[in-house]
Simulated scan of single mutants.
Amino acid sequence: MHNSGVIVFGEDVGFGGVFRCTLGLQEKFGRHRVFNTPISEQGIVGFAIGAAAQGLTPVAEIQFADYIHPAFDQFVNEAAKYRYRSGNSFNCGGMTVRAPYGAVGHGGHYHSQSPEAFYTHVPGLRVVVPSGPREAKGLLLASIQHPDPVVFFEAKMMYRTAVEEVPTGDYTIPVGQARLAREGGDVTIVAWGQMVAVAEQAAAVVQEQGGVSCEVIDLRTLLPWDRATVEASVSKTGRLIVVHEAPITSGFGAEIVAAISKRCFLRLESPPVRVCGYDTPFPLIYEPLYVPSTPRVVDAIHEAVKF
């Protein structure tokens, strides 16, 4: 993708960012296109909205998704409504805001949160969550070219744990289209971000131990989410498990369960199950007990199959 209107900005992005995602960009494209900002999330997103409205293609970074909340008003009352309120006379499409989210192994309650569900409640936004390096590149390029503003959540844990070959050329992965990560016929597991790997590990365990065949769906996009792919899978397996790091109450898994229960009610063999974070602040210690793990997902699979 070649777009001279793309600008990259955020706290410390000129130095490569705390996760080194923008390393070398300032040297390659110059300080006028890659630059640091003050520590003001509201200012970062507000500037991105203005830049997009004037025809630029801003790619902004919120250093940690835990600190995205000061910009909530800018997302909800400005970016999401820009096109609608003007009858499509003007918009801030082409705006992408990246935000590292989720557990990192030692982040505690201010650097480990998963706030994606807040933004799925906002018509006019797109919410994208990649599950690996290859997915991240294709989805990010698609988000940058998307006509609506995108909130792009990247799992912090994967910066240090995910390793795979990524094509050097341009390619995009359509926003709103889920990926079948693993085929199966007994249970459908829906996840996004880091939890896709956890779901795949659990599926491998139950396959090896007891011959249970799990289908794993990487949702990729939460708004809009690919209902058709999930519905087709649950219609085949008759069982649904949703896995996410965020607290269970009002997490996005509840939306998936509600929608699929309505569409697949007569084909369900067991009640849908959610394996999620708990309804507590993210803990300072005992992080492995809070974040959904392979054993917790395995237990949920057994619960669904034995119902």
Rank of each mutant, 00 (worst) to 15 (best):
G94C: 11
A48C: 03
S86N: 09
V76R: 12
F75K: 07
N88L: 01
A71S: 14
S89M: 14
P58M: 09
D66N: 14
F75G: 04
E61Q: 12
A71N: 02
Q54K: 12
I68V: 15
E78I: 12
R83D: 07
R85L: 10
F75N: 13
L56M: 15
G87F: 05
V76C: 11
T57N: 13
A80D: 02
Q54F: 05
Q74T: 10
H69N: 14
A48T: 00
A53M: 15
F64Q: 04
V59H: 03
N77D: 11
I49F: 01
A79K: 09
S86D: 07
A48I: 05
A80I: 10
K81Y: 10
I62H: 11
C92V: 06
V76L: 12
K81I: 07
F47E: 03
C92F: 08
F64H: 04
G93M: 07
G93I: 03
R85V: 10
A53T: 10
A71L: 01
A48M: 02
E61G: 07
Y67F: 15
L56A: 13
N91I: 00
G93Q: 11
S89I: 14
F64G: 04
F90W: 10
G46W: 06
Y82M: 14
Y84C: 08
R83A: 12
C92W: 02
N77G: 04
Y67K: 00
Y82T: 06
F47D: 00
P70A: 09
A80S: 14
S86P: 09
Q54M: 14
L56G: 03
N91M: 02
C92T: 05
G87Y: 12
N77I: 01
I68G: 08
F47W: 11
A48V: 02
Q74S: 13
E78A: 14
A48E: 06
A65E: 04
A80Y: 03
F90C: 14
F47Q: 01
A53Q: 07
Y84V: 11
A60G: 08
V59M: 10
I62F: 00
R85I: 09
A65R: 08
Y82H: 15
A65D: 06
N77F: 02
A79S: 01
Q74H: 12
R83Q: 11
P70L: 04
N88Q: 11
Q54W: 02
Y82P: 08
G50D: 09
H69K: 11
G50S: 05
A80G: 06
F90S: 14
A80C: 03
A51C: 10
A60H: 05
N88G: 00
A48W: 01
C92Y: 12
D73P: 00
Y67W: 07
N77R: 04
V59W: 01
V76W: 03
Q54N: 14
D73C: 00
G50C: 00
A53R: 12
F47L: 15
A53N: 04
A53I: 09
N88E: 13
P58R: 07
V76S: 05
L56D: 01
